[in-house]
Design a protein around this nucleic acid. Structure first.
Length: 459
RNA sequence: UCCCCAGUAGCUCAGUUGGCAGAGCAAUUGGCUGUUAACCAAUGGGUCCGCGGUUCAAGUCCGUGCUGGGGAGCCA
């Protein structure tokens, strides 16, 4: 007999049919001569109720079954006599595959997110985290579908790299040297290390993506990204996933069009394909989530320049902890004010001062600003950071020497400006931040399977 | 890295002016013919985060360290 998964079973009509299901016991309620077992197999948020009565030969064992035990059930689908579910299974055979210990830490009650983080290996077994990670999985597919439908090519940019994408943050060093041994023994030369030069985990695939955009036109990279910043916030982790499209013959406005289309597409995809799981978040996690999602899908995202943003902030009359003036970067409180209070929807901020942005962003004709764009969204803040890239060799070289970057090291990057350089643009979207946006979850550690943060590397 | 807050049973938390360590849930055992975080009864369960100090006496006061949370910076 072929096993059927609950997502199929619960979404079709199997009444009066005999089925085989396998899963884990979420909860059990005993009466004298029969028991209710609720089974979940991970394919869907929903459980199925199974009735086991004392006619089963191993009923005495079933009565003692513990939460999270793995079991296999053959039974008939019938209309439920009780309230709360349409169908249930009358079991004709139950096999206890594995009896869980009674010390299983997850109980039939709500646990705090902090506690669940300490048992990150078990938390996907809860309703909430199961839902998060099913949505996460669907989103991977949605991203590839979005890009494939638009003729983009997927590029896996390297994770080990010798280039630091200027301004992206501290990097994790990679070495085969034993660092303790190295510290003791002088005279060890980096030339003898695996790559023969300083090597790091990538902080961005952008520079590689630019090379491929000059060959394949429209490309995207999507993979793990590493930042060794000592950040302790609800929005930062040391290992996260970043989506980075890079488009040839594309200016800043088209770049923003693309970003807006992407966010809307992904959000819409989740509402269409993850309905049940999403409902958990609108019901229990964030009461305003439906409204937020509606705004993300249906509003036209505001587009203002950095200079206009400064003006809005300073004219607002609102008191801020940090004083903002032209040339300084926007602080979190300013970003929150713009997205949450002032516009109450996603807003692109463009044309930042060149001094506070990396070397590769295209210098505007005012000579003071660069063609940068950040997308700020309510509650989360920055979710996209991107720019039109500097395609003019001489301007790029000047910017590099200003930032004290060696032309020799970036020879390959500069080559792209020597051989058929064209305007191009791209951005990075924080995958986990997007998940936070559409689930209403407030801590980035709760939308990634095993979060890596300073001092925390368990699991 | 800086600022603020917290750490008591497996979980969530109470603990008064410094004076015998508590509750609900969970677990275990038993009961119950339709339950829905089932219900009813009984039982077991503690390094009060660690270290040091003040005191006749510290979960409670002081110092310090660790861990967790929130905020800031950095960014996606």
């Amino acid at each position: 007999m072929k096993r059927i998964k609950l997502n199929i079973l619960l979404n079709s009509d199997f009444s009066e049919k005999k089925v085989l299901i396998k899963g884990w016991v979420r909860t059990k309620r005993n009466s004298k001569t029969f028991s209710f077992l609720e089974i979940n197999d991970g394919s869907t948020l929903k459980n199925i109720q199974v009735i086991a009565d004392d006619k089963l030969e191993n009923y005495s064992d079933i009565k003692k079954i513990t939460i999270s035990s793995g079991i296999s059930i053959i039974g008939k689908i019938v209309k439920s006599l009780g309230k709360g579910q349409k169908f249930e299974i009358i079991a004709s055979n139950i096999e206890i595959i594995s009896l869980a210990l009674e010390t299983y830490p997850l109980q039939k009650k709500r646990h705090s997110d902090e506690f669940l983080r300490t048992i990150a290996h078990l938390r996907p077994r809860t309703n909430k985290y199961g839902a998060v990670f099913r949505i996460r999985s669907e989103l991977y597919f949605a991203i590839h579908k979005f890009y494939r439908d638009r003729g983009f090519k997927y590029l896996s940019s390297p994770i080990i790299t010798s280039s630091d994408c200027e301004g992206a943050g501290e990097m994790f060093k990679i070495t085969t040297f034993d660092p303790y041994f190295t510290a003791q023994k002088n005279g060890l030369d980096i030339k003898n290390d695996f790559f023969g030069q300083e090597t790091n985990l990538t902080v961005s695939g952008q520079l590689c993506a630019e090379m491929f955009a000059m060959a394949l036109g429209d490309v995207y990279t999507f993979g793990p990204t590493f930042r060794a910043e000592n950040s302790n916030t609800t929005r930062h982790v040391a290992e996260f996933w970043m989506l980075e499209p890079e488009m040839a013959f594309c200016d800043l406005n088209q770049n923003m069009d693309h970003g807006e289309e992407l966010i809307k597409y992904l959000t819409n995809y989740v509402t269409e394909h993850c309905n049940e799981d999403l409902a958990l978040f609108t019901k229990f996690v964030d009461k305003n989530l439906s409204k937020t999602i509606e705004i993300i899908i249906n509003s036209t995202y505001e587009r203002i320049t950095y200079s206009e943003a400064i003006e809005i902030i300073n004219k607002s009359g609102k008191k801020f902890k940090h004083i903002i003036q032209w040339g300084k970067d926007l602080q979190s409180e300013h970003e929150k004010f713009l997205a949450d209070d002032y516009f109450k929807k996603p807003v692109f901020i463009t044309n930042y001062p060149r001094e506070i942005k990396p070397f590769y962003m295209r210098l505007n004709s005012d000579n003071k600003t660069v063609a940068a764009m950040d997308l700020l969204v309510p509650r989360i803040g920055e979710i996209i950071g991107g720019s039109q890239r500097e395609e003019r060799l001489n301007v790029l070289e000047k910017q590099m020497s200003k930032n004290k970057l060696s032309r020799e090291k970036y020879w390959w990057y500069l080559d792209s400006r020597r051989f058929g350089s064209v305007p191009h643009s791209g951005f990075g979207m924080g995958f986990e931040r997007f998940l936070m946006l559409i689930t209403g979850i407030n801590n980035i550690r709760d939308v990634i399977p095993f979060p890596r943060t300073p001092g925390s590397i368990d699991f």
